[in-house]
Every structure is written in C-alpha cells, then in structure tokens.
Amino acid sequence: MSNEARFESLGLELPPAPKPAGVYKPVVVVNGMAYLSGHGPLLPNKTLITGRLGLDLDVEAGYDAARQTGLAMLATLRSHFGSLDKVKRVVKLLGLVQCVDGFPDSPSVINGCSELFGSVFGEDHGIGARSAIGTNSLPGKIAVEIEGIFEVDA
C-alpha cells in the first residue's frame, strides 16, 4: 500500500502547510535526504496547541500535541513534494517538549508523532532513530516542537 493510500485510509485531516516564522526554509533536500525544520502542533484552524507538560497539560494532551505536530510535518512534506509517496523512510526525529523541571515523560509525549509516522509510512519505514528532550521554553509557548530527517525520492 502506498503512503498516500495508508494516509487516506486513516481518515486524518492535515492542517495547512505552515509558513516559516523566521529566516529559514521549512524543507531542505540534500542527496536524497529531506531535512524538516522544527514544526509545532498546528491545527487545521491555524491555531497552535500551547502549554507546559506537567503544569497545563498531561501526558495524553502532550501525546495529542505531538501527533498534531506530525500532521503539520506531513502537510509540509506533501506540499513540498506533491505526494507522501515521495517519502521512503523516516530517518531521525528530534522532539522537544515544553515541560516543568524534572518531567520524566518526554519520550511518551513524542510517541504521538512516532506512532503516527509508523501508521502512515509503515512500521519498517515510519519508525526511525529519535531523541525526546524536555525544555523550559519553546517559541509561542507551543507544547511540542519536532524536526525530522527523511529519506526521499527527490
């Protein structure tokens, strides 16, 4: 099954592909690798999920924010390449979680994105290397920011 067909079968809604909020490109492709800049949990109505894990949000809400961030990343990939079928595999994700000091569950939060990509790209190609880090601040008070590296048919 193609990536686009898997995506369609999941009945998911993509937000609009986010526009850069600074001086950077959303995607840079080098030697068959697509490097995605950090994305936040952009909703279809163009608002962002904000809050601090362990204070304003629980792990389930953080998981949902990471999943929504993954959808924003998919929107960028589809917008840039014209199809999710151009993605061969997820190589690496870096997930940042805005949280209180000592918050132990950043990996559980970022699973929201990783599990989404596993569903869209398949277990073998959708799960890559990953880091999940807690931080005390993210731009615009967003709950999660995730960047990624993807192998692509450019």
Rank of each mutant, 00 (worst) to 15 (best):
E4L: 02
A5N: 05
E8C: 01
E8Y: 01
L14F: 09
A17D: 15
P20T: 13
K25F: 03
V28F: 02
N31G: 11
M33W: 13
A34M: 01
P41H: 11
P44N: 09
T50G: 03
T50A: 04
G51Y: 02
L57D: 08
E60L: 12
A66C: 02
R67V: 04
A72Y: 06
L74R: 12
L74N: 10
R78W: 12
H80F: 15
H80N: 13
F81L: 15
F81Y: 15
F81Q: 14
V91P: 02
K92R: 14
L94W: 08
Q98V: 01
C99A: 14
C99N: 09
F103R: 06
D105Y: 12
S106V: 07
P107C: 07
P107M: 10
S108R: 11
V109R: 01
I110M: 07
N111W: 08
N111H: 10
G112Y: 00
C113S: 06
S114E: 03
L116G: 00
F117A: 05
G118Y: 02
S119K: 13
S119I: 02
F121G: 01
E123Y: 05
D124R: 08
A129Y: 12
A132M: 00
A132E: 00
G134V: 14
T135Y: 12
L138Q: 10
K141W: 12
K141E: 12
K141D: 14
K141R: 12
G148Q: 03
F150I: 08
V152R: 04
A154Q: 13
